[in-house]
Computed example of a mutant assay.
Amino acid sequence: MTAEPVRFDTKIAVLLRDDLAPWQELNVTSFLVSGVVATDAELIGEPYEDADGTRYLAMLRQPVVVLAGDAAMLATAHSRALSRKLETAVYISEMFATGHDTANRAAVRAVARDSLDLVGIAVIGPRNAVDRTFKGAALHR
């Protein structure tokens, strides 16, 4: 018996700048997704358990789409996300030189919105709005 696929009303998507080193891609993605998760505790499912009864941490209830694009694509998607009032997380290049949350927030606060050197953004929102926000971005490889 095959279960029918679940279709979520919302979509979570991450857009990474296409010139990042692999360690940067992973770091930025994890930070951005943590921001999305912080918007709603309902995004987290139940804890996992294996057949032996070993318990594991709960994770997101829905998939995350990871995309890639150049700096211009990031700027466009950022503008679209804000104009659509989507919940948005940002990661800027200056954050690679910081070592903690307070310094990260200070780095973002020091730069005007249109001057942010974005290396990644994440959004959650209605599926169609998220799809339109990231129109033109490629799936990350």
Rank of each mutant, 00 (worst) to 15 (best):
M1G: 15
M1F: 10
T2H: 08
E4Y: 11
E4L: 15
P5I: 01
V6S: 02
R7H: 11
F8S: 08
D9H: 09
T10L: 11
T10Y: 07
I12H: 04
L15K: 04
L15T: 02
L15V: 05
L15M: 08
L16S: 06
R17M: 11
D18A: 08
D18L: 04
D19P: 02
D19Y: 03
L20Y: 08
A21L: 15
A21H: 14
W23H: 14
Q24D: 08
Q24T: 09
N27A: 12
N27F: 01
N27M: 07
N27E: 00
V28S: 05
V28C: 11
S30T: 15
F31C: 09
F31G: 00
L32T: 05
V33N: 03
V33M: 05
V36F: 06
V37H: 01
V37K: 04
A38P: 02
T39V: 10
D40Y: 02
A41Q: 11
A41Y: 02
A41H: 11
E42F: 07
E42Q: 12
E42K: 13
E42G: 12
L43D: 03
L43G: 00
I44G: 05
E46T: 15
E46K: 14
Y48P: 00
Y48N: 12
Y48D: 13
E49A: 14
D50F: 01
D52Y: 09
G53E: 12
G53Q: 10
G53T: 12
T54E: 14
T54R: 13
T54C: 03
T54N: 13
R55Y: 04
Y56E: 13
L57R: 12
A58L: 00
A58Q: 00
M59E: 06
Q62H: 07
P63V: 07
P63K: 09
V65I: 14
V66Q: 04
L67H: 01
A68R: 14
A68L: 10
A68Y: 05
D70N: 15
A72C: 03
M73A: 15
A75Y: 04
A77H: 11
A77M: 10
H78G: 00
S79D: 14
S79T: 15
R80Y: 02
A81S: 15
S83C: 04
S83K: 13
K85G: 04
K85F: 06
L86W: 03
T88Y: 00
T88P: 01
A89Q: 14
A89D: 09
V90Y: 02
I92C: 07
S93K: 12
F96Y: 14
T98V: 14
T98R: 13
D101W: 13
R105G: 07
R105A: 14
R105W: 10
A106R: 13
V108Q: 00
V108S: 07
V108N: 01
R109H: 13
A110P: 08
A112P: 00
A112Q: 10
R113Y: 11
R113S: 12
D114C: 02
D114F: 05
S115H: 09
S115W: 02
L116D: 02
D117E: 13
L118V: 06
G120P: 04
I121G: 03
V123A: 03
I124Q: 06
G125E: 01
P126G: 15
P126I: 04
P126T: 04
P126Q: 13
R127A: 12
V130S: 05
D131M: 08
K135E: 12
G136C: 06
G136N: 04
A137D: 02
A137R: 01
A138W: 05
A138V: 14
L139W: 12
H140L: 05
H140P: 00
R141M: 11
